[in-house]
Design a binder for these strands. Structure first.
Length: 898
RNA sequence: GCGAGGGUGGCUGAGCGGCCAAAGGCGGCGGGCUUAAGACCCGCUCCCGAAGGGGUCCAUGGGUUCGAAUCCCAUCCCUCGCACCA
C-alpha cells in the first residue's frame, strides 16, 4: 500500500511555503517600516548629498514597464549610496500639465485637474508598491499653483534679462489639437503631430519666445565637457544646435538692397555662376511685386507640400547680382531648395562644387565653372575631375580664381573674408523657443494686454495667475472664461485682457530638479544657497526620447539661472546621464497595445512581488541596453530570492550544522570579501547585472559550503549577511526580511555597506585555482581515468619562482638567469626552465610558493568534491622529487592515482 | 548623404593589446540527489589527443606589434540620430 499521493504533496508544499516568504505580506510591511522610520527623508542641512534623480513621469495614471525600469535603477543606486553612508536626495514628482489631461477630461466628463490629481494618487500608490524609496516630503507637481507660480516668476526674470521676445513666426499648427507645436513635436517627413499623427499646417502667429539662441554657443561647446553623458545624446544635441562656421558676404543686385549670403565654402566664390534667393526672402518678395512669373512661383512654392517640388524647381528673376570676387554679373533665381530660415535665405551657387547647385544648374543650363582641384595628397586625381559631370565637393587647391590660384581651400576661406569685405560668421540650426500654447492645462503666461500700455507683466505680488475653472469649449477655455480674461491694466488701471496662452510644459520640467531642494519655499523658486550646494544632479536617468528637448531646455535654464545669480557656479544641471533602454515584449518587439505583448507591472507585482520584478529587470541587462521580457527570467529571479531566504531561514533555525573553522571556511571568507569588492565597483559603474551575478555566485557557494561540511558559523553568517546587503538595493523587501531573520536590529536600508576589499592578489589566486581544476579535469578526461582515488598537487620550488622573477624583467632571459649566483646552483634545470620562459615571450605574475600552497589548500575541497577523491597539496620539499620537478609557478604538478 | 554606435561560439552577451578557445545566462548532452518530477549539485557543449598537449577561431581583407577579438586602414552589413543646412 502506498500513502495517498495528495497527502504527501500537500505536506511537501506546505513545508516549502513555511520556509519561503510571502511577498504580499512582507512587502507592504517593510514599506510601512521605512515610511515610519523616515528612511528616505533628507534633512535640509545635509551637505552636498548624492543627488539621484529619475525623470519625473507624466501623469498618465499608470506605471508601465519603462517607468518601473527607470525607477528601479535610480532607487537601487540611491539605496546603494545611502548604505555607503552618503546623504542621498532621491525625490519624486509629477510632470502634470499637458494636453492629454484635457483630452481625458473630455472623454470622461471630468476636468483636467481632478483627472490629473487622481492619476497622481494612483501612480504614487503604484510607486510605493514597487518599494521605491523617495523623500515624499519633497514631492512636487507642476500643475500645482505653488509650483507654476514660479514658472511665471521665472518667465518675468527671463524677461528682465532680455530673454523673452514676442515674435511673429510661422509655426507648426496641429488642426486637431488646436495648438502650436515645437519643431521637436513634429515627426517625420510627413510632418505629423507627435501626439495624434495629424498632418500639421503652418500658421503665422505672434508668440512668446525664450531666446535660447543667445546660449547656442555655450550649449554647443559645453557638450564636449559632459564626459559622463552618452555620446549619442551629445551628438543629437550637436545636431540639433547645428553649429556651422562660415562667412557672410554681401552681393549687389542693382535696384534692390544688398543681399547678405552665408556660406561655409567661401573658397569657391570664383565659381559662382548664379545667385539664388529663397521664396521667402524679402528681396524675392520685392522682385515679385514687379514680376508676375516670380510672384507666381513664390505663391506656388508656399502652397506646395514639402517634397512636392523638384529640387531643381526655380525661376529666373531677370535680375543680376554682382559677384564681389570677379565683378561679374550672375543671374538671380528664386528657388525652393534655398530655405528661408537657413543661413540668410540667400546664396551664391557654385555648381562645380556643390551637388544641389550642380543639379539645379544642369536643369537650367547654367554654366558650370571649376575653381578647386584636388590637392596632391588627395585621393582623387585632378585629371579625373570633370565638374561638368559631377560636382567636386572636397577641399583642394584653387584654380581659375585669379591671383589666388594655388591657394588651399582652408586658407582661401580665411583670406577671402577680408578680401571681399565679408565677415566670419557662425550660424546655428537652433531656433528660439516658442513657448506659447493655445491650451488650458498649462501655466498661464503672466502678461496682460492693455490697449494703452501694450503687453504688461502681472506684478509679482499678484502671482500666481491661477487657472480658472475648466470649461468645455472647442477653442481655448481661457479665452472662453470671460471673467478671468477681463482684468485691469497693472500700469494704467484701464480695462485689459489677460494673455490666454499657456506655457509649453517643458518650462515646468526645465527647473523641477531645483525645486526639490526646497519644495515648500514661498518667496523664491528654490533656496539659492542650498541649490548651489546640492546641484548638479549626480545621476540622472531617463529615456532617450528626451535627448534633445527636455535636456537642452534644462541646460539652458540652468545657465540662465546661474547668469541671473539665482544659483552660484552651476552651469550644467546633470553630471552623469544614463538613458535607459527599452523593455521589449516577450516576442522581442516593442510593447504595444495593438500587438498585445505588453506586460503589466501590476500583474507582476501581484504574482511575484516587487522584489522579483526589480531583480529580474536589473539582471536582464545593463541600464542603457534594451532587453526583452522573459517569464523564465522572472521565475528564475523569484526562485533565487526564495532560495536565499530559505537558506537564511534554515540557518537562523539552527538547521545548518555548524562546526570549527577550516581551510574551507578560509576559502569562503575570501570569496565573501572578493564578492563584496567586485559588486561594489559594479554598482558604482551602473552595471547592476554584473553585481547581481556576483551575488548569485556567492549564494551558490554558501549552499555548497553548507552541503559539504559543518560550517563555521561566523563565516557562514557573514556570507549570508554580505549577500543580503549586496542584494538589498535591488530587492529591498526580502533583504530586510532576511536581515531581521538573522537577528539584526534596525533597518537594513540604513545599515552599512559591506567592507569592500578583495584579498591581495585575489585575481592570481582565482587564476591558480581555476587553472588547476581545469588541468585536473583535462587529465582525468584525456587519460580516461574512471574513478580517481587520490589527487596530489605539488607546488613548484622557490627557485623556479626566482627564475621567473629574474626572467620577467630581463632583456636576455637565459644569460640573466645563469648569471644569478643563487640560481646557478640549479644548473641545467634552471637553464632549461629559463629557456622555456624565454620562448613564451613574456612571464606572468605569480604568487609566492607559500601563497600558492595556502591557496590550493583552501581550494582543495572543491576538487575533492568534484572528483570524490582525496586531495593532497604539498610543498615542493614535501613532494616526491619526480613530481615536484614538473611543477611551475602558477601551475602545480598533478598526480592522479586511480 | 552626414554623424554616432555596433558586428564575438547554437542563441543571448561580457571582454576591448599578453592571463582569451574567449565570463555569465539560455538551449542541448551526460552524471549526482530523488519512488518520480521539479528545484538543487557536478561536468561537457569548435576540431584532434590514453597526463594538463596541438590546431582553427571573435563580420571580411590588409597593416602595426615579439604578441591582436582587443590598436590602425579599407570593405561589407546592422542600429540609431540628423538631413533640400548653403
Amino acid at each position: 500500500m502506498s500513502p495517498p499521493q495528495s497527502g504527501t504533496t500537500m505536506a511537501a508544499e506546505s513545508e516549502k511555503r513555511e520556509c519561503g516568504f510571502n511577498h504580499t505580506e512582507i512587502e507592504p510591511a517593510w514599506q510601512e517600516a521605512w515610511d515610519e522610520a523616515d528612511v528616505f527623508a533628507i534633512p535640509d542641512d545635509a551637505e552636498d548629498p548624492a543627488y539621484v534623480l529619475a525623470m519625473f513621469p507624466y501623469t498618465s495614471g499608470n506605471l508601465h514597464m519603462g517607468h518601473v525600469r527607470n525607477y528601479t535603477i535610480t532607487d537601487a543606486f540611491a539605496r546603494f549610496e545611502r548604505m555607503r553612508g552618503e546623504a542621498v536626495l532621491h525625490p519624486m514628482g509629477w510632470d502634470s500639465f499637458g494636453l492629454p489631461a484635457e483630452n481625458a477630461a473630455e472623454d470622461r466628463d471630468t476636468n483636467p485637474r481632478d483627472w490629473t490629481l487622481s492619476c497622481m494618487d494612483s501612480m504614487r500608490e503604484q510607486l510605493t508598491r514597487m518599494g521605491f524609496g523617495y523623500d515624499w516630503d519633497r514631492e512636487l507637481a507642476t500643475c500645482d499653483p505653488d509650483y507654476y507660480r514660479w514658472n511665471q516668476w521665472l518667465f518675468q526674470r527671463f524677461q528682465d534679462a532680455g530673454l523673452v521676445e514676442r515674435q511673429a513666426a510661422e509655426l507648426n499648427w496641429c488642426p486637431s489639437c488646436e495648438t502650436v507645436l515645437a519643431d521637436e513635436q513634429v515627426e517625420g517627413e510627413d510632418e505629423l503631430c507627435w501626439r495624434c499623427d495629424t498632418p500639421i499646417e503652418h500658421r503665422e502667429m505672434d508668440q512668446w519666445f525664450l531666446t535660447i539662441t543667445d546660449y547656442a554657443e555655450e550649449l554647443y561647446e559645453a557638450l564636449d565637457d559632459l564626459d559622463d553623458w552618452p555620446n549619442n545624446v551629445r551628438e543629437m544635441q550637436r545636431n540639433w544646435i547645428g553649429k556651422q562656421e562660415g562667412a557672410s558676404v554681401a552681393f549687389d543686385i542693382s535696384g534692390y538692397d544688398e543681399v547678405d549670403i552665408f556660406t561655409t565654402r567661401l573658397d569657391t566664390i570664383y565659381g559662382a555662376t548664379y545667385f539664388s534667393l529663397a521664396p521667402g526672402h524679402p528681396v524675392a518678395q520685392e522682385i515679385a511685386e514687379d514680376n508676375d512669373e516670380v510672384a507666381e512661383y513664390i505663391e506656388m512654392a508656399a502652397a506646395a507640400d514639402e517634397d512636392d517640388l523638384d529640387v531643381t524647381s526655380g525661376v529666373f528673376t531677370g535680375e543680376y547680382a554682382v559677384n564681389p570676387a570677379t565683378g561679374e554679373e550672375i543671374p538671380v533665381y528664386v528657388a525652393d531648395y534655398v530655405l528661408t530660415d537657413i543661413g540668410t535665405g540667400a546664396l551664391y551657387a557654385v555648381p562645380g562644387h556643390d551637388d544641389r547647385d550642380h543639379e539645379f544648374a544642369s536643369a537650367h543650363d547654367i554654366p558650370i565653372q571649376q575653381v578647386v582641384e584636388p590637392a596632391e595628397d588627395a585621393e582623387a586625381d585632378p585629371e579625373d575631375i570633370d565638374v561638368q559631370e559631377a560636382a567636386y565637393t572636397e577641399d583642394g587647391l584653387l584654380i581659375n580664381s585669379g591671383e589666388f590660384d594655388g591657394l588651399e581651400s582652408e586658407a582661401a576661406r580665411d583670406r577671402f573674408v577680408s578680401e571681399f569685405d565679408g565677415e566670419h560668421r557662425t550660424e546655428y540650426n537652433l531656433r528660439d523657443w516658442g513657448i506659447s500654447r493655445q491650451r488650458y492645462w498649462g501655466t498661464p503666461i503672466p502678461m496682460v494686454w492693455c490697449n494703452e500700455c501694450g503687453a504688461v507683466p502681472v506684478p509679482e505680488e499678484d502671482l500666481p495667475v491661477e487657472l480658472p475653472e475648466f470649461v468645455q469649449t472647442t477653442g481655448n477655455p481661457l479665452d472662453a472664461t470671460e471673467d478671468w480674461k477681463h482684468t485691469t491694466c497693472p500700469e494704467c488701471g484701464g480695462p485689459a485682457e489677460r494673455e490666454t496662452d499657456t506655457m509649453d510644459t517643458f518650462i515646468g520640467s526645465s527647473w523641477y530638479f531645483l525645486r526639490y531642494v526646497s519644495p515648500d519655499l514661498e518667496d523664491a523658486p528654490f533656496d539659492s544657497e542650498r541649490a548651489s550646494d546640492w546641484m548638479p544632479v549626480d545621476q540622472y536617468v531617463g529615456g532617450s526620447e528626451h535627448a534633445t528637448m527636455h535636456l537642452i531646455y534644462a541646460r539652458f535654464f540652468t545657465k540662465v539661472l546661474d547668469d541671473i545669480d539665482l544659483i552660484d557656479g552651476v552651469r550644467e544641471p546633470f553630471e552623469n546621464l544614463t538613458t535607459q533602454g527599452m523593455v521589449l515584449g516577450e516576442d522581442g518587439l516593442k510593447m504595444s497595445k495593438s500587438r498585445g505583448n505588453g506586460v503589466s507591472p501590476q500583474r507582476i507585482i501581484d504574482e511575484y512581488g516587487a522584489d522579483t520584478a526589480r531583480l529580474f529587470i536589473m539582471e536582464a541587462a545593463q541600464p542603457e541596453k534594451e532587453f526583452a521580457w522573459d517569464s523564465e527570467g522572472v521565475r528564475s529571479a523569484h526562485d533565487f530570492l526564495q532560495s536565499l531566504y530559505t537558506l537564511a531561514t534554515e540557518y537562523s533555525r539552527g538547521e545548518v550544522s555548524t562546526g570549527e573553522g577550516s581551510t574551507i571556511a578560509d576559502y569562503v571568507a575570501r570569496e565573501i570579501d572578493a564578492t563584496a569588492a567586485s559588486a561594489t565597483s559594479e554598482y558604482e559603474d551602473f552595471r547592476f547585472n554584473h553585481a547581481l551575478q556576483a551575488v548569485r555566485e556567492l549564494v551558490s557557494l554558501l549552499r555548497r559550503y553548507r552541503e559539504v561540511t559543518a560550517v563555521d558559523p561566523g563565516t557562514f553568517e557573514n556570507g549570508l549577511v554580505t549577500a543580503t546587503k549586496l542584494l538589498a538595493p535591488v530587492a529591498p523587501h526580502v533583504a530586510e526580511e532576511i536581515w531581521a531573520k538573522l537577528g539584526n536590529d534596525g533597518l537594513l536600508a540604513e545599515a552599512g555597506w559591506p567592507a569592500a576589499e578583495a584579498p591581495e592578489d585575489y585575481d592570481l589566486e582565482r587564476r591558480l585555482i581555476e587553472d588547476t581544476r581545469e588541468d585536473v579535469r583535462d587529465i582525468v578526461e584525456t587519460v580516461g581515468i574512471e574513478d580517481p582515488a587520490e589527487i596530489t598537487l605539488a607546488v613548484a620550488p622557490a627557485w623556479k619562482h626566482d627564475v621567473a622573477d629574474v626572467a620577467r624583467d630581463a632583456e636576455n632571459v637565459v644569460p640573466a638567469v645563469m648569471q644569478n649566483e643563487d640560481l646557478q646552483r640549479h644548473g641545467e634545470d634552471a637553464a632549461d626552465f629559463a629557456k622555456d620562459l624565454a620562448a613564451r615571450g613574456h612571464v606572468d605574475q605569480f604568487l609566492s610558493p607559500e601563497r600558492e600552497l595556502a591557496t590550493l589548500q583552501r581550494a582543495a575541497w572543491l576538487i575533492e568534491r568534484e572528483f570524490e577523491a582525496d586531495v593532497a597539496v604539498l610543498s615542493a620539499k614535501d613532494a616526491p622529487d619526480d613530481l615536484a620537478s614538473k611543477a611551475e609557478p602558477g601551475r602545480p604538478a598533478i598526480d592522479i592515482v586511480e
